Structures are given as C-alpha cells and as structure tokens.
Amino acid sequence: MRQKPVKLIECPRDAMQGIHDFIDTDLKAAYINLLLQVGFDTIDFGSFVSPKAIPQLRDTAAVLAKLDLGTTRSKLLAIVANLKGVEAACSYPEISYLGFPFSISETFQQRNTNSGIAQSTDTVKRLLESCEKWQKTAVIYISMGFGNPYGDEWNPEIVEKWAAELVGQGAKILALSDTTGISSPEKIRAIVPGLIRHYPDVEVGLHLHSTPNTRYEKMQAAYESGCRRFDSALKGFGGCPMASDDLTGNMATEELIYYLQTKDEHLGLDMEKWQEALRFSAKIFH
C-alpha cells in the first residue's frame, strides 16, 4: 500500500492566542506571510470567535486582508466555535478549512465553546452543511482526546464512539487533540492505528501538546502509528493556557521537521524561508 504523504499544519494562531499583550496586526501578518512561503500544507492562521474569549485574535479579518496568497501553496485554516463564526469564516473565499474544537469532555466543551456536547454535535452537523455549501472543508478536533483534568470519564472506547459519530455525520478530517499535554506514546499507539484502519477515507491527524522532554517520543509513536497529518508550531510556542505545566506547548515544528527527515520524508520546504521565520519569531514571542 502506497504511503500517504506527510501534511504539516503550522499553527501561528495557537502559538499567539494566549499571549496577553496585543500583537500588532501588521506584525502578525508579516510573520504569517513568511510562514506562507515555507511550503507547509496548511497555516492555522486565525479564528472567528468572540473577542471576549480570545482578544488576541480579534483582528483575524484584518490580518487576512494583509496576507499574500498569490505565490503560496499553503491553504488557510481558521478556528470557529459556533455558527456565527462559521458564517463569518465561510464569507472569505481565501479560507479553505474551518476547524471546530469538539471536546469529548463535557466540562471542557462548556468552558471552551459555551455549549455542551449535545449542542456541539448539532453545531458540527450545521458546520458540515455550511462547508459543503461554501466549498470549504471542516477539520474536527477531537479535543481532550487523551484524557482530561476535570474527572470526566475517558477511555479509548469513548474516543472511538465519537470518531464514529463525527465520521457518520460526514467529517473528512479528524484531528485527535491533546489539550493539556497528557497524551503518552502508549495512548497514541492504543488509539491512532485503529482510527486510521477503520476510516481509510478520513484524514486522521494529531494536534499534540507536550513538554519539551516528551515531544520526541510522542512524534515517534504518532508516526509509527501511521499518522501523516501533524499540527505543530515554530519553537513549540503556545499550547493550552489552562495546562498546569508552563512548559506544555505545541509540538515544535523544527523538531518535527528533523524527525521526519530522519525517516526520509520529502517535505518540500523552503528551509531558507523557514530560517527567516525562525529569526522573525523573536519579534512576536519574547
């Protein structure tokens, strides 16, 4: 069976959203424009959510207007949390993907989207309908996919149940998400191969958070489990603001690139532009 190509999703949105001081719109756009030239499959660049919830990203539409999309092969992804956000994101032809965080922890879903799992299931249904109408693709993040700190029940069977539900509704991309960095190689190996096997027509990706000393083993477990869609952020910036460990951030893109190169994966990246983005990042992440 032919190996699927690796897709790298660079996530400046996730890296920036928790920063308290507002990052100038021109600075955000300049940074994302650099990332657009590197050659990633997708740039998770912004979100259409309430400015009260994520004030840092209140200028997503203004940033989008400043992006140079004429020479990039990367596609744009924006996060939405409700139908108002879906409507806003769908109005921009430049956006290819709408990402929706679907938490399988009732507590976190209420905190994150101000709605429970039942209501969010209906939101996913309507999101998928809107995506079809506007020729977008939904990325459904199975949030708290490796457990949760709230005491809500979690096991691999619950993950599999909700994956089946979402695929049944028509989801084509599922990103299993570790919101607080509690995934482990054992959990990844227990869940990911089965999802890939059961849903050959669905893209199963991973959005992992991690401390620096556990990133490599999680990358390895994911890759060896058949995952070929990885979310990451330059230098591992960002992650869940509610994570208890300050070192818990995104998977570091430069480490992921290095790991995949050791596996002879051809990533097709412009490494000069990547180095430029690494240098520029110091203007945003102090």
Rank of each mutant, 00 (worst) to 15 (best):
R58F: 12
L278A: 03
F100V: 03
I104W: 08
D68N: 13
S177H: 09
C131S: 08
G85L: 08
I117A: 01
I196G: 00
I104F: 11
D68M: 04
T42M: 12
I173M: 09
Y31N: 02
G147W: 11
A164I: 03
R229W: 08
C240A: 01
R279T: 13
D245F: 05
T60K: 11
K52E: 13
S105C: 12
K125P: 00
F102E: 04
I23L: 11
L67I: 06
A243M: 07
D26T: 11
P55H: 11
F102R: 03
F48M: 06
L34Y: 01
H207W: 13
S183F: 13
M251K: 01
K84M: 10
E254R: 05
G239L: 10
G205H: 01
F40E: 04
I182E: 05
Q3H: 12
Q261I: 07
R229Y: 09
Y31P: 04
V86D: 03
A164L: 08
M1N: 10
L35W: 02
E165C: 07
L195C: 06
Q37R: 15
W154C: 01
A233C: 12
E129R: 07
W154Y: 15
T72H: 01
L195W: 07
P51Y: 15
G236W: 15
D270F: 11
L260F: 09
V124W: 05
G18D: 06
K273V: 03
V139N: 08
H198E: 14
S96Y: 10
P93R: 14
H207E: 06
G226L: 13
K133G: 02
D24F: 08
I173L: 06
R215G: 00
C90Q: 04
R228G: 03
Y92H: 15
S244M: 12
D14A: 09
G18P: 00
T179S: 14
G70F: 09
G151F: 09
E132Q: 15
L195A: 07
G147L: 05
G116T: 11
V192D: 00
G205Y: 02
I142C: 04
G239P: 02
S96W: 04
P51H: 14
F237A: 06
L174H: 01
M219R: 02
G46W: 04
G239M: 09
T25L: 02
H198N: 14
E157T: 03
K84R: 14
A190E: 14
D44E: 15
K133W: 14
L64K: 07
M144K: 13
Q17I: 09
V202F: 02
